[in-house]
Amino acid sequence: MKTVRLTLRYDAETIHPMHRFVADSDAFDSYRMIHGNLVGDDDNTFIFYVVGDPDAYAAAMERTEEVGEYDLTRTGDRSFTVYVRDVPEAVDERLLESLTKGSLVVLPPIEYRSDWTIRFSVVGESEDLRRALAGIPEGIEATVDRVGEYDGTDAAVGALTDRQREALRVGRELGYFDVPRTASVEDVAAALDCAPGTAAEHLRKAEATVMDVLEL
């Protein structure tokens, strides 16, 4: 099986109102779909994990016609999950149909980013992947970031929290994982704008999470 890492860029006509709201607001740090299920012809069911202002998010949900019923659960001071039944637009239906045909499986999490893009991976047979890319609706620009053989490592990435992933990314960019090491925990902490002890904890928990998921 092949795996393809995709970035989809939406225009003003195709972006979902909630994605646009979060992207254009300064009140949110992270927005990810962690589970999703196509339940029928009328609506879809998703669970999102969000870091930001839950009250602002709930108010926007109430104003959005595409959102059916939802349930918001706070998981921290600025983090929450949202179970939502969403009424898809035609472009969303075509996109979902394109990405779920045949052998294809979309791997969570799906990252909703402030530049009106989403990033995620899809696993499947080569022909189905080519067909899916050809079927991306007009108004959505698809970029293939990476192609390879599926080896299960996406599961490790999906198990990390946003902050753990950021700590690993920053550590890699600075050289914390180089041999010999060219950056310290203090360097990572400065880039993350947190205390060295906090940065060390993020790195330690991230490394433990990845090791637990990988089958060695």
Rank of each mutant, 00 (worst) to 15 (best):
M1A: 04
K2T: 03
L8D: 13
E13I: 09
I15L: 14
P17I: 10
M18C: 04
H19F: 13
H19A: 11
H19R: 02
R20W: 00
F21R: 05
F21I: 05
A23H: 12
D24Y: 11
D24I: 09
A27M: 12
F28W: 11
S30T: 08
Y31T: 03
R32N: 01
R32P: 02
I34A: 09
N37W: 11
N37Y: 08
N37T: 14
D41K: 10
D43R: 13
N44C: 13
F48E: 07
P54H: 07
D55S: 01
D55Q: 03
Y57C: 11
A58D: 06
M61D: 11
R63C: 10
T64P: 08
E65W: 11
E65G: 13
E65Y: 12
V67T: 04
V67A: 14
V67C: 08
E69V: 10
Y70C: 04
Y70A: 07
D71A: 15
L72D: 02
T73A: 12
T73L: 11
T73D: 05
R74S: 13
T75R: 04
G76E: 09
D77P: 07
D77L: 07
V82S: 00
R85W: 07
E89W: 09
V91F: 13
V91D: 14
D92K: 10
E93Y: 15
L95W: 12
L96F: 08
L99P: 09
G102P: 14
S103D: 06
L104E: 04
E111Q: 05
Y112D: 03
R113N: 05
R113T: 05
D115N: 14
W116T: 14
T117M: 08
R119N: 09
F120M: 11
S126D: 14
E127C: 08
E127M: 09
D128L: 13
L129H: 06
R130G: 07
R131F: 02
R131K: 02
A132S: 10
A132N: 03
E138R: 10
I140K: 08
I140W: 08
A142W: 01
V144F: 01
V144R: 06
D145R: 06
R146I: 04
E149T: 08
G152D: 05
T153S: 13
D154V: 14
D154Q: 04
A155F: 10
A156N: 03
T161Y: 06
R165V: 01
R165D: 03
E166Y: 05
E166S: 15
A167E: 10
A167H: 02
A167K: 05
L168T: 06
L168F: 09
G171T: 08
G171L: 07
R172T: 05
E173K: 00
L174I: 00
P180T: 03
T182G: 02
S184K: 07
E186H: 04
V188A: 05
V188W: 01
A189M: 01
A191G: 01
D193W: 11
C194H: 03
C194Y: 01
A195C: 03
T198M: 11
A199K: 04
E201M: 09
L203H: 01
K205N: 00
A208G: 02
M211D: 05
D212A: 13
V213Y: 00
L216A: 00
L216P: 03
